[in-house]
């Protein structure tokens, strides 16, 4: 039988047991409160390098990761991969299909996990950060996070990853698309994949636009390079890896890496506070309101703003009651 005994799992995890890692991922994914209990057992500093990979569905993110991870593993790196695909808003189920692009992964150096977004909308899932920490504790040198197929605004990976690759392909639009805010701005490296389909034109466009974007570059001193790849043949992958290390060196020297790591801890802290408070309110205060006031809201006797305020007031008075 599978075990859910935390002590036992952590002991095995410390011996680098892949099954224990896999099981702990599930437990944390299912119960965010559990992460606190798990991480009590580790005091390793955050030293894995997190690479975020994002871009529209079908541009070749997973196939590119297959190539990247293999090359990095050949260099002796240990790699943890998280690939996120969307959960259905109707059934809650998910079809996680990233794995079929990654059949070449070496088992001893690489651990790959598919995750469903489970209702999160920023392109990641709620537990993504926790699983990054778990990979770090397991001894991974590099964590690769693949977002859901992103549209224009799924930019949450910005706050998680050290280096972000935004993947594009030829034929998705004209130069105006490249001017829009959102996902295109967050790339530290812009990749034009499917080079064989004529990526030259879009690569030139992106280059021109980046030359104009002085303001944006001014913030970090980093001018994102544009790399053309073919993730099936492997063309351009060496150049891409070189650019990743260039970016890493740049942000380390400029002190940006440290800022990023602090920022994501701060974000996580705020997310945890929100989660805990919301959870408390939903368990202890909301159920009564639902019974007594919700129908009145529907019938226009109360408005949502007043009811929200009264929930807040109830929460506050419960807190005071606990203190005394």
């Amino acid at each position: 039988m599978r075990t859910d005994n935390l002590e036992e799992l952590i002991a095995k995890f410390k011996q680098k047991d892949r099954r224990a890692l896999a099981r702990l991922i599930s437990l944390i994914e299912n119960d965010p409160e559990l992460a606190g209990k798990v991480f009590k057992h580790f005091n390793k500093p955050n030293d894995a390098y997190i690479i975020g990979i994002t871009g529209p569905p079908g541009v070749g993110k997973s196939t590119l990761i297959n190539q990247l991870a293999q090359k990095l593993a050949e260099e002796g790196k240990r790699i943890g991969i998280i690939s996120i695909d969307p959960s259905s808003p109707f059934s809650g189920g998910a079809f996680l299909g990233d794995r079929i692009r990654m059949s070449g992964l070496q088992q001893d150096k690489i651990f790959m996990r598919s995750m469903a977004s489970r209702g999160a909308v920023g392109g990641l899932s709620r537990a993504t950060f926790d699983i990054c920490l778990l990979y770090e504790a397991f001894g991974m040198d590099i964590v690769i996070v693949e977002t859901v197929g992103a549209g224009q605004s799924e930019v949450e990976v910005l706050h998680l990853a050290d280096t972000i690759l935004v993947i594009n392909v030829p034929g998705l639009g004209d130069s105006i698309q490249c001017q829009k805010a959102g996902i295109i701005e967050i790339g530290d490296i812009l990749v034009v994949n499917k080079k064989d389909l004529g990526g030259e034109e879009i690569a030139v466009q992106l280059d021109l636009i980046l030359d104009d974007a002085v303001m944006y570059i001014g913030q970090t001193g980093w001018r994102p390079p544009v790399v053309q790849t073919n993730s099936i043949s492997g063309e351009g992958i060496d150049e891409l890896i070189e650019e990743i290390w260039n970016h890493k060196e740049h942000i380390e020297l400029a002190g940006i890496l440290e800022q990023k790591r602090q920022k994501r801890l701060k974000d996580k802290l705020i997310a945890l506070i929100q989660f805990k408070i919301l959870n408390y309110v939903m368990q202890h205060i909301y159920p009564t309101i639902e019974k007594t006031k919700l129908n009145n809201i529907y019938e226009n006797k109360y408005n949502v703003y007043d009811v929200a305020q009264s929930i807040y007031n109830d929460f506050f008075s419960q807190l005071k009651g606990r203190e005394s």
Partner: peptide
């Protein structure tokens, strides 16, 4: 998927890959 399950689509795999994937 429509019944609410998370389906990891392995596609074509060797038996060894299937067992390793099930573990991961």
């Amino acid at each position: 998927r429509d019944a609410g399950m998370e389906v990891i689509f392995g596609g074509f795999q060797t038996c060894e890959q299937i067992v390793e994937t099930a573990i991961e």
